[in-house]
Design a protein around this nucleic acid. Structure first.
Lengths: 252, 252
DNA sequence: CGCTTACTTGAGTCTGGTCAAACGGGGTGG
DNA sequence: CCACCCCGTTTGACCAGACTCAAGTAAGCG
């Protein structure tokens, strides 16, 4: 398994010129908040596709925000069965659990090359002391993650295979386009069918057959190592999902 | 569906004499923190067994901490399929998602009579401004919930029916005894098999057969409307679960 | 060109779902 | 006090969605 090895300490993307912050979805920041975040940031971590960013059981001294790229969080059973918990996209926070409670209880892997903004865990105290607004934002972000997990759990527990697949693809696609990951109109999700299987709690073979059904209905197109959404509405309807009601959200 | 109807505004359990706080699991509080929490608390809500405490879609102005009793969080699909997301026990926070993001995305129901400490959502701002330690605690609690959800998702997605049942019962039992819910030695969990089914993503019939297997192995005893744990170790081993590594935690 | 990774497809099996019926205890109204 | 009902549990028969095994294809890469 590849390890995160390409560390860059230079800040190539200073917070003041953050390419994410101007996006519609993110709420505006006070100058003073921005200044603190900039000071809070210690560097950037660049990892290759397939790299393991954080490992279950580790005591990480860091906290990250995804600046670019895709990744996912997962847990393993002792015999190797894997459950993907959620996907990570630009603007998402990584490693909060580890920072607050000491030990990571899940691992994180990159689906594409990623650039992560690195923050010092120890400075979190200072953030809470001096920047209540940012502290609130961090809780907000944790709460959002919880919400996504709730929805995922509902899906895995109670939806049929076809509904699950439709839900998952619609979900990822919605999140991706909210952070402008759809350069060209259709979002292209860089995952394999094995990832989908491990997210939905299905076998690889059955996942393949299920995706085929979605493709036959002209809802998605599967391409080499990735998935293109054709008909979001159709997916939403099939999954009986109302979509995320996302207004502005904070970016730390 | 029963609504929460028995509201008491008098504080019968002042924070200074909180019956929960002396427990081993909860970290000690500064006098000043305690004073704020006491001010933060607006009253108590008493609900009957079966009452719906919070409804998906509602905009609740309140935040609660469970003082006594059992409950659960759940989501429904439009056609009525239900997924139980997690259980609620003394010391747990309810409604944070709603308080932070406006709308509740899940419902909460009481499994037994419950007493809830009620907090004003609006005062949350003040808490974050003046009590960074408490703010930190709230994030910590949100993070803990996330952790439990991760584990649940792993279970529903990747464990077999028998493993799932073993995991769930061990999990609930561990949490219950950490807050002293085991007056008599064996914890008695006040749920029906339908609840277990809806938590594990199984049908009622299959859940029944699965629990029977656990009982045949002398791991649990099913009694009328409740479950008694006989052999925690055995359950843990069967579920291939290491248990929760819980040190002290905050109580708000 | 051979290797690897990812996707397909088919056959046969099994876990878990559905349907249906019955049981048993607690509560209630006659 | 008894009959009845309701809820939760139990059981059996049958079905189907999902799994495993196995083999084959296609694209990318050194």
């Amino acid at each position: 398994m590849a390890r995160a090895d390409t560390i860059r300490h230079a800040k190539r993307y200073p917070c003041e010129e953050c390419p994410l912050r101007p996006l519609e979805v993110f709420r505006a920041f006070e100058k003073e908040e921005l200044a603190f975040v900039s000071k809070f940031k210690r560097g950037e971590l660049s990892v290759d596709k397939g790299a393991t960013v954080l490992v279950e059981g580790a005591h990480s001294a860091h906290l990250f925000t995804v600046l670019s790229g895709w990744g996912f969080r997962y847990k393993l059973l002792p015999d190797g069965r894997r459950q993907i918990l959620n996907y990570l996209m630009p603007g998402d926070l990584i490693g909060l659990q580890g920072s607050l409670m000491g030990e990571m209880q899940h691992s994180v892997e990159a689906l594409s090359p990623m650039i992560l903004c690195m923050f010092e865990r120890d400075k979190l105290q200072e953030l809470y002391r001096n920047h209540p607004g940012l502290a609130y934002d961090i809780t907000w972000i944790a709460s959002r993650e919880e919400r996504m997990l709730d929805e995922n759990l509902l899906s895995v527990g109670r939806r049929t295979a076809l509904e699950r697949a439709a839900y998952l693809i619609a979900f990822i696609s919605a999140r991706a386009s909210s952070v402008g990951l759809n350069g060209k109109k259709p979002v292209e999700i860089p995952i394999t069918q094995q990832h989908i299987a491990d997210t939905l709690g299905l076998s690889l073979v059955h996942t393949n057959k299920t995706i085929r059904k979605l493709a036959d209905r002209n809802l998605v197109k599967w391409r080499d190592r990735g998935c293109e959404v054709v008909d979001v509405e159709g997916l939403l309807a099939l999954a009986r999902w109302e979509g995320m009601s996302e207004g502005k959200r904070p970016l730390v």
